[in-house]
Amino acid sequence: MSDSSSIVPPHEPHAEGLAARLNWLRAGVLGANDGIVSTAGLVVGVAATTNNAQTILAAGLAGLVAGAISMAAGEYVSVSTQRDSEQAVLAQERRELAEDPEYELAELAGIYEQKGLSPATARTVAAELTAHDAFTAHAEAELRLDPRELTNPWAAAGSSALAFTCGALLPLLAIVLPPASWRVPVTVVAVLVALAITGSVSARLGGGKRGRAVLRVVVGGALAMAITYAIGSLADTISG
């Protein structure tokens, strides 16, 4: 019989890493939802004023590009600010470790005592972690940060722009591919179905009630298209 103490348990992802991946996925779903709603509202509004497919396509493409750039820029600024804050607190922690390692060791032991370890065990754990990698041990225990996995503003910007673009392509294709008389009805149906899917997915990822989430995004998208179509029809009437 083999010694069970020699068996290495299979690797399991940390809860923090799983949560981070879910947050990225949720952000992607919400970005796609934004692309669907904003582009659908734009092309439906334009379709209310003209039957020219080239004009509608040009307006939709302009909205897609502008929206994707805006989403990317906003996400880049937001995540850059977050990363700057993370780097600042990590730099401070590195200085504190260099200036007063004994105090930092006692502080780390105190954290593990608060988690339920005895003082002696907490001190031993803190000492061994400090000997292995003091900076990472303190960053994870005190700041809940992994210095090796800081947020990446470029990745955030790129994923945000990609999600928005993927979402925006649906109403853009739905408005230009059908015959003129079917453009708006096809777009409305396609958009509402897509929003129902994104609402369901976001509810599942967030652990919320699916029906409420679906209703919220579907009603919001329907209102957006109805309002822009009404504005486009009014503008067409006034100009005509």
Rank of each mutant, 00 (worst) to 15 (best):
V189E: 00
A190K: 01
A190L: 05
A190P: 04
A190W: 02
V191I: 05
V191D: 00
V191G: 00
V191Y: 00
V191T: 05
V191P: 02
L192A: 08
A194K: 03
L195I: 01
L195A: 03
A196R: 09
I197F: 10
T198S: 12
T198V: 11
T198R: 11
T198Q: 07
S200Y: 09
S200A: 15
V201R: 13
V201L: 15
V201P: 07
S202F: 06
A203Y: 01
L205E: 01
G206A: 14
G206P: 09
G207M: 06
G207N: 08
G207R: 05
G207E: 04
G208H: 11
G208M: 05
R210D: 01
G211C: 07
G211Q: 07
R212K: 15
A213G: 02
V214F: 00
V214W: 01
L215M: 15
L215Q: 10
L215Y: 08
L215E: 07
R216D: 13
R216N: 09
V217G: 05
V217R: 01
V217M: 05
V217H: 05
V218T: 07
V218W: 02
V218Y: 01
V219T: 15
G221D: 06
G221Y: 03
A222I: 10
L223M: 12
A224G: 12
A224Y: 12
M225P: 09
A226M: 13
I227Q: 11
Y229A: 13
A230Y: 00
